[in-house]
């Protein structure tokens, strides 16, 4: 799942090392428009409901935290 998330991230914004980066939101790498594009991709790719309450920097700061979020939402 992590590889696919990194692929989606690269489609939205290239030139970022998503395997290492852990400040995607707090570091200003992804802006709110990127987040929205990412959420709509994640929703259709993994068939999960991502609510506005899930849009926190902690959930979107790295590919790994995004992966954790998807796994949590799939379990609900």
């Amino acid at each position: 799942m992590l590889e696919r998330i990194i692929e989606i991230l690269e489609e939205i914004k290239s030139d970022v090392d998503y395997t290492m980066e852990d400040q995607l939101v707090d570091g200003g790498i992804l802006d709110s428009f990127d987040i929205v594009a990412l959420v709509s991709e994640l929703k259709s790719e993994f068939d999960v409901e991502i609510g506005i309450e899930d849009l926190t920097p902690e959930n979107f700061n790295s590919a790994e935290t995004i992966c954790n979020l998807i796994e949590r939402l799939q379990g609900e």
Binding site: F33, S40, S44, I52
Partner: peptide, 20 residues
């Protein structure tokens, strides 16, 4: 505005459909 106006509009069904 970002939290209570921007995100709800951007993630709404019509806008999502349009983006798709």
């Amino acid at each position: 505005m970002r939290e209570y106006v921007f995100y709800p509009i951007m993630l709404s069904k019509p806008i999502s459909k349009l983006s798709k």
